[in-house]
Nucleic acid binder design. Structure first.
Lengths: 212, 212
DNA sequence: GATTTCAGATACTCTTCGGTATCCGAAGCT
DNA sequence: AGCTTCGGATACCGAAGAGTATCTGAAATC
């Protein structure tokens, strides 16, 4: 192997990365309908390179999915390390999410296209679902930890709550996509606050009836 | 005009209806990628008939949107006429919605495809948004009426709450689409119950601090 | 330095499909 | 009855685009 340059595998790896990068941009712009030609061209290659690195167009989707979800998961995990008062953290988490969405709205659109695609494609859906589960597990862990430290028993299992939060998040994202000005930053935070207030209220109610 | 048969306009209207009907089925099956040819064929016509009745493929989407949203709106309005205890009605509404989704999952998928499409298409988005607003207005009215009768002041304006509910509904629908078994019927009801419990808790809190 | 291997380029296939331009024949008008 | 209108049919276009089959030149191997 020559020293100044890269080995073949490395070079291919690099090509793949470039294609992925280009793919992200092109898909963001044109959605799932984007053409492979354009992706390849944008990365400075041709279709040949693409098909040497991806099995099919869908394979690219899958790869992008993995990448993005992975990032988001890291973000959440990083978040779970911070420490502050409950109501505050809830609001902060909401804002963080809203920021995340605002940061690149293109990805949002793409996400829904992917979801729709998943709706028509069992195997794709499975992979997507697996990633969603990971994300939710991260959220559930965050909640559980917090509940323990506060000695506030959860009236609903933490993974269920995570599911609900995930749904709310997606719903918010959709709303934001359709009506960007409607779904302002604080709205989601507010929504979460209401939800957690409800959780606490129910918990207290249950505690009382159990104590009597 | 001959009596036994229909006038031209009527006949065309009928054709349009048939096309719309076929469109619903074909789109449900193949998504927005469905071909006009197939739609027309299913209705027993040819492309010619289609383009005599719709400006473009997108025009069909729009028409379908109007139809479906119209139906759902009626459903909601009918619902607002019923009368029962709050917690119960919340749960019932949740279940009604879950039933609505379960009734035809195809439409769900289509809805998200339309939403994604809207994400890339300003004018389409506007029309879709207009319909969403109507729906939310219906929901807001329902809430407002209920709050008044119960003399429970809302800590958040009813239209805001409607927006949140709408978002939750969509998030739930998305979750259900991806993982049908996860989003069971009662889950959404539960979610709503938590939310409304939160609303009440916050309202009471505010009432107390105002009273002191 | 000859040989093999393989990342990526080129060229081609095959199909699908939205939209249009044109035509036809029956309904509607006078 | 004859002229007109127009809903719907037919035929066509042109572009696009997902894959594939094949080639090539440089890197890896010996």
């Amino acid at each position: 192997m020559s020293l100044g340059t890269l080995t073949r595998k490395q070079r291919q790896q690099r090509t793949r990365e470039l294609l992925l990068e280009a793919g992200a941009k092109v898909l963001a712009k044109h959605g799932l309908g984007a053409s492979i030609d354009e992706v390849a061209a944008r990365a400075g290659f041709t279709k040949g390179a693409f098909y040497a690195n991806f099995k099919s167009k869908e394979d690219l989707f899958l790869a992008m999915l993995d990448e993005r979800f992975g990032e988001r998961l890291e973000q959440i995990e990083r978040f779970s390390a911070t420490d502050s008062e409950v109501g505050e953290q809830v609001r902060a988490a909401g804002e963080d999410f809203a920021r995340y969405l605002a940061a690149d709205p293109e990805w949002q659109r793409l996400f829904f296209e992917l979801a729709a695609h998943a709706g028509r494609n069992r195997s794709f859906a499975e992979r997507m679902v697996a990633r969603c589960r990971e994300l939710r597990a991260g959220i559930a862990g965050l909640i559980e930890g917090r509940a323990e430290r506060l000695e506030l028993p959860l009236p609903i299992p933490s993974d269920r709550i995570a599911e609900m939060l995930f749904m709310m998040g997606n719903g918010f994202a959709l709303g934001r996509m359709l009506e960007p000005d409607l779904a302002s930053e604080d709205m989601y935070g507010q929504m979460l606050q209401v939800f957690f207030a409800g959780l606490r209220a129910i918990a207290e109610e249950q505690q009382q009836s159990a104590g009597s």
